[in-house]
């Protein structure tokens, strides 16, 4: 595109001038990008590299005077051999998949409900932004109080009416994880809805009209026209949520602390305990690195899936 605008006849001098211009342009773009790259490399990559290095050592700052002993991959092996760590890893995957899936489904429904232009919907949207902006620690504490079985507004009646067990949802190993997932869904569904709504609103109106003129039913229209066009937005929403859901800490930390037993222990809750409480740097670094790896793999998988769906949508 850029070349067409300069002119159709290329004189030699002009060509040289354009080349110089392209060089200058490249330099200019590099100059714009360099500060951010340098900054990130300096401040994020250096500690990250140290984290990778430490993960091969038995390194505890509170014991043995902070001595480092090389242990190879033992810290990584422990993530699977140690029952607590393994449970945390599994919980984190369950949490991520369930929470993101529910947030996506509910978020999409909510976005479709809000799609219609109008004052009423705008006001609803504004109110729905509130949970997104409340500090996650506070969200966790609110629900912990509401679900408390002896005093909580919800918890008391849920137990009284026999919906939850007598000890409440958060104190049972079978229901604690689902409840924590639902709290996360409560907080983040509006954000997903917002992103999807933004996508819906930017869909070209003529295509939608053409589809309804063809006599397609609402469901057909949605599946065949809306969804394929919405894919990039879906991608953004999913990637954002997967990244944050996999690192879930605040909500679990304040509602259950990872309990009862290890029922809601997540990788980050466990990692923060190992790293920032016991200062078990080697093991904590290994946990952090595994988390990065998992998120990267999940996001890559999403990219591939979306791209394939995109290709398929374009073929039909």
């Amino acid at each position: 595109m850029a070349t067409t605008s300069v002119g159709s006849i290329d004189f030699p001098q002009r060509k040289a001038a354009r080349l110089r211009f392209q060089d200058r342009r490249r330099l200019f773009l590099i100059a714009l990008a360099v500060p951010a790259v340098v900054y990130v490399v300096l401040i994020a990559l250096w500690p990250l590299a140290q984290g990778i290095w430490y993960s091969f050592f038995d390194y505890n700052l509170l014991r043995g005077g902070g001595r480092r002993t090389f242990v190879g991959l033992a810290n990584y092996a422990e993530l699977w051999t140690d029952s607590t760590a393994r449970r945390a890893l599994i919980n984190t995957f369950v949490f991520t998949f369930a929470a993101v899936a529910l947030e996506f489904v509910f978020g999409l429904c909510l976005a479709l409900l809000l799609w219609r232009e109008g004052r009423f919907n705008r006001i609803c949207l504004a109110f729905l932004l509130i949970p997104v902006t409340i500090t996650p620690v506070v969200v966790g504490l609110i629900f912990r109080a509401l679900l408390a079985v002896d005093y909580g507004f919800f918890g008391y009646y849920l137990a009284e009416w026999g919906i939850s067990g007598p000890r409440g949802f958060l104190a049972s190993t079978s229901s604690a994880l689902p409840v924590v997932i639902l709290i996360d869904v409560w907080e983040w569904t509006p954000l997903v809805a917002l992103i999807l709504l933004a996508g819906l609103k930017s869909l070209p109106g003529d295509i939608l009209e053409a589809a309804s003129a063809d006599g397609a039913t609402a469901l057909q229209r949605f599946r065949l026209v809306v969804l394929p066009l919405l894919l990039p937005t879906v991608f953004l929403a999913l990637v954002l949520r997967v990244m944050d859901a996999f690192r879930v800490f605040d909500i679990i930390f304040v509602t259950t602390g990872g309990g009862p037993g290890d029922a809601t222990n997540s990788l980050m809750v466990y990692g923060v305990k190992q790293g920032l409480q016991f200062f078990n740097i080697g093991f904590a670094s290994a946990i952090g690195n595994v988390a990065i790896l998992c998120i990267a793999v999940l996001c890559a998988a999403f990219t591939l899936l979306i791209r394939r769906a995109d290709v398929r949508a374009n073929e039909t």
Binding site: R63, A171, T173, G259, D262, Q277, F278
Partner: peptide, 23 residues
């Protein structure tokens, strides 16, 4: 003892697991 925080953490999970049942 110096190891108390870790022991307390281990007990904190184990005793709670016993109380809620299943272990």
């Amino acid at each position: 003892i110096p190891q108390y925080p870790e022991i307390q953490d281990l007990l904190g999970t184990a005793v709670n697991a016993v109380l809620v049942g299943g272990v």
